[in-house]
Computed example of a mutant assay.
Amino acid sequence: MDRIMKERTDVDYAREIFLEAIEPLKRTERSGIVKCVGRVLSTSILAPRNVPHYRRSAMDGFAVRSVDIMGASSTNPVMLQVSKEIEEGTCVPVSTGSYVPDEADAVLMLEDTIAIGDMIEVRVQVHPGKNVGDIGEDVRKNEIIFNKGHLSRPCDIAVLASLGIAEVTVYSRPVVAIIPTGNDLIPLQDHEVPPPGKTLNINSLMIGLYVKKWGAEPRYCGIVPEHREHIREALIRNLDADLIVISGGTSVGEQDYVPDVVASLGKKLVHGVGLSPGKPTALGTINDVPVLCMPGYPAAGLVALFAFGKTAIRKTGNIPDTPEVSVKARLAGKINSREGYVSYARVILEGNTARPLMTAGAGILSSIAKSGGFVIIPPNVEGYEEGDEVDVVLIE
């Protein structure tokens, strides 16, 4: 049988049809606000009260009746009695954020006064409302604070706390089953040097850490031998997950069964993409569960995970899409690329300079760890020359 991989689906098109096959989760749960940083709100939140719920001072100084110091100037100073209550001719000391008595309509800044015993000399006038924060100035009761689908940040939690909200309803985190395949793999717990021909299962750890970083919950599965029935059983056992990532067995070798097994259980959407490294990537679904089949070579697998896994997790978990973090840099050397492929070229950032590290080498994971990011080269561009300004997508 001719097993040469002739298909090469465009990366953007492959991602599009993969995402079209994914339904966002509807499961929700209650979460204490302290634990919901990075969680996505499943309902809009209305303010249950005003913030502030009292008139507050915006400055350190004195609460006054503006009418009492009307016309005050350096040539026509006004004296006020420092008191505990506001009445004609008196003022009350206040600090930033403190309560402004109802009878006062303005706050005079401390630096605009001169203390003389138990009185102050005022040489400026203030208008009503000056330096006074009104009730609800920050948040109005029944105002929509955050809309459904909002990704909670630490500053958002502070707002919720100021409103007395202790819990919110969020979307459940997607469960991502991670299935490693390969007769050469041995568990990572075996810390001894692997015998020749054997490899530590580092892919599961790498995938799981990124899955968690991107907002999902990893489910680590045991190593599956390169055997059709074993792969089939592993996939069936994990169809209760929200997304399956299977590592290895995607190329065109005699024992690379994964894409065919996915097709036999469900639907193979893509096998072979214009991605370098990462061409053997396959995408599919089984019983509406999306399946990402990534190459077993670590660097190629990681590129496939970045290209397809991250966006799949975001859609599954209702996580808002955010642009990749990138910086501008000048190339310190030429970068070659494969025509018709989206190439992820690894570079080392040195200030405003990007030094090419490696554009090939699907199994060299250390080249990614040593790099600061990727220069992603479009399929219609034949690389970049030394001195070209490029965008470097940072490895988080």
Score class of each variant (00 low, 15 high):
Val252His: 05
Gly248Lys: 01
Tyr99Pro: 01
Tyr344Asp: 01
Leu275Trp: 12
Val193Arg: 14
Glu217Ala: 11
Pro101Tyr: 11
Ala166Lys: 15
Asp138Lys: 12
Gly89Ser: 09
Gly129Arg: 09
Arg314Gln: 14
Gly164Arg: 12
Asp391Phe: 03
Thr281Lys: 08
Ile17Arg: 14
Arg56Lys: 13
Val375Trp: 00
Ser74Ala: 13
Thr113Arg: 05
Ala47Gly: 08
Thr311Asp: 15
Lys279Glu: 11
Leu188Ile: 12
His227Leu: 06
Ile319Gly: 00
Asn50Thr: 06
Ile348Ala: 03
Glu137Gln: 08
Thr43Glu: 13
His230Trp: 02
Asn131Ser: 12
Met70Ser: 14
Leu394Pro: 02
Ile116Arg: 10
Ile364Met: 14
Glu254Phe: 03
Gly249His: 02
Ser98Ala: 13
Ile4Arg: 15
Asp102Arg: 07
Ala304Phe: 03
Pro128His: 11
Pro195Ser: 07
Ala299Ser: 15
Ile207Val: 15
Gly387Leu: 13
Ala345Asp: 07
Ile186Arg: 02
Val92Ala: 10
Val34Lys: 13
Val381Asn: 12
Pro277Arg: 07
Glu167Lys: 08
Leu80Glu: 06
Ala329Glu: 05
Tyr257Met: 05
Leu46Ala: 08
Ala300Asn: 04
Leu108Glu: 10
Ile186Pro: 02
Val92Asn: 06
Thr169Asn: 05
Asp156Lys: 06
Gly117Thr: 08
Tyr257Phe: 15
Glu7Ile: 14
Leu243Val: 15
Ser343Asn: 14
Gly248Trp: 07
Ser42Val: 05
Ile348Ser: 00
Ser98Trp: 04
Pro77Gly: 07
Val64Cys: 12
Met119Arg: 09
Leu235Ala: 00
Pro379Asn: 12
Ile178Phe: 08
Tyr210Trp: 15
Ala362Glu: 07
Ile165Pro: 09
